[in-house]
Design a protein around this nucleic acid. Structure first.
Length: 423
RNA sequence: GGAGGGCUGGCCGAGCGGUCGAAGGCGGCUGACUUGAAAUCAGUUGAAGGGCAACCUUCCGGGGGUUCGAAUCCCUCGCCCUCCGCCA
């Protein structure tokens, strides 16, 4: 949620910002609603002040035994007026809030301006794509041949975009989860959390999934519960509505959770294999910090995610998303893209964002500065550290051998009972 | 699912329909004492919105109602606790 003051002070800047993001929004309407709101507020507050004075007078008159019926009559009329204005006001406030909840975050000045992913800027590369000496197979071939990925049964049990991991496939997934959680808790200072996988709509609104993106979520019929599309949702909402002491900041949280996404807008994309699933595992990283530190924290958050790929010895690159490619809640996002030999492309495996105070404002999550003064909104950041399924794909493809087997990365072997090769 | 009890400021906790944003305590902050700290004493300390400001308004789980006036009375929803039932 943006600060309503932006609609008063920088309406033109706001319009340009939305244009950069490829959004259309009637911001003039929002600005005039805000004006209307303030006009009504002044009006109704004056009446309330009068009623408060009048009520006090009535109390005093009654104490003295003086008749106050004429005053009561007048206050009664004012009461009716107040009620009407209050109703009008709360309608406008609801409408205003509804608008604010649907307007995306303001990108940071350092974000490249452009309509889509073609304007993303590569920041750095790590590792060298391997020269195989044979045509590398896609992960679905490797996985099916080894009997560790079962796509048919995924469809049979659920529907398309569900996969069953079998035997060493399942075990490798579990190894990756443990490896990543150990790394982030032991080396990067994150606290491990196991949050609910279903959350209520207020929580979904806090991070920005609702009200605008409900069609991307799975919900439970007859209950106000939604399946989380990422652990970012429960982790970031951990302190919703709280005023934190500055000395507890920054907070670093990590969690393994499954993630559930309808993938409503991606029919026909990545249908083959398990690159894009309705359910996938992920280890997530979340930071809650002061505004002064958040961009520094974004760099170290991204580096923490990169460390996973470095230890797994998977080639990757980091790109800074352009205004048109960024998510709704983000001010700045780095995507980490891992090399997929079968596609000859780098593909997203992690997305690290600074949301500044956009989510904090929705969640009303603030901190009390140590040096005193008014409480301020915290900044929130999140990043995948990293997606398990896509990591599994990257390992199978980058470590594949000509005979159809693949090598287990060294750092994972302790988690795999010492197994060095699958197949 | 059944029965009962509760929800008040950062935390704990009192509160008669009017002078209650709310006693008291803890915590925080400031000062005194101290070489410093602790202890002690004194003072101070909620949030949001509107306004240049003085100031005004709102907030006692959410919503609604009664009333000139609601933390206080009524209705409703939510959550928490205790007991019973069921259960990994």
């Amino acid at each position: 949620m943006l600060d309503i003051r932006l609609f008063r002070d920088d309406l033109d800047g706001l319009k340009q910002m939305l244009k950069n993001r490829g959004y259309e929004y009637p911001v003039d309407k929002v600005a005039s609603l805000d004006e209307e709101r303030r006009r009504l507020l002044v009006e109704v507050e004056e009446l309330k002040a009068e009623r408060n004075r009048g009520s006090k007078e009535i109390a005093e008159a009654m104490a003295k035994g003086v008749d106050a019926s004429h005053l009561r009559e007048r206050m009664k009329n004012i009461g009716v007026e107040i009620k009407e204005l209050d109703e009008k006001l709360s309608m406008i406030e609801r409408e205003l809030k509804e608008h604010l909840l649907r307007i995306p975050n303001w990108p940071h000045a350092s974000v490249p301006i452009g309509p889509d992913e073609t304007h993303n800027v590569e920041v750095r590369r790590w590792g060298e794509p391997k020269d195989f000496g044979f045509t590398p197979r896609p992960h679905w071939e490797i996985g099916e041949n080894l009997g560790i990925l079962d796509f048919q049964r995924g469809v049979m049990l659920a529907e398309s975009r569900f996969t069953v991991l079998v035997g060493f496939g399942a075990r490798l997934g579990r190894a990756l989860i443990n490896f990543m959680l150990d790394l982030h808790t032991k080396e990067h200072g994150f606290k491990e959390i196991e949050p609910p996988f279903l959350v209520n709509s207020e929580t979904m609104q806090g991070t920005g999934q609702l009200p605008k993106f409900g069609e991307d979520l799975y919900s439970c019929s007859g209950e106000d519960l939604w399946l989380i599309p990422t652990a970012e949702v429960p982790l970031t909402n951990m302190h919703r509505g709280e005023i934190l002491n500055e000395n507890v900041l920054p907070l670093y949280y990590t969690a393994y959770t499954p993630c559930f996404r309808r993938e409503a807008g991606s029919h026909g994309r990545d249908v083959r294999g398990m690159l894009r699933q309705h359910q996938f595992d992920k280890v997530e990283l979340v930071k809650i910090c002061t505004p002064e530190k958040s961009y520094e924290e974004l760099e170290t958050l991204t580096q923490a995610a990169e460390k996973v790929l470095q230890l797994l010895e998977l080639p990757y690159r980091v790109v800074c998303l352009s205004t048109g490619d960024m998510g709704f809640a983000a001010s700045k996002t780095y995507d980490i893209e891992v090399w997929l030999p079968s596609q000859g492309k780098y593909r997203e495996i992690s997305s690290c964002s600074n949301c500044e105070d956009f989510q904090a404002r929705r969640m009303n999550m603030r901190y009390k500065p140590s040096e005193g003064g008014k409480s301020r909104f915290v900044h929130t950041l999140n990043g995948s550290g990293v997606a398990i399924g896509r990591c599994l794909i990257a390992i199978m493809e980058n470590y594949q051998q000509e005979d159809g087997s693949f090598i287990v990365p060294k750092v994972l072997r302790p988690y795999m009972g010492g197994i060095e090769k699958i197949g």
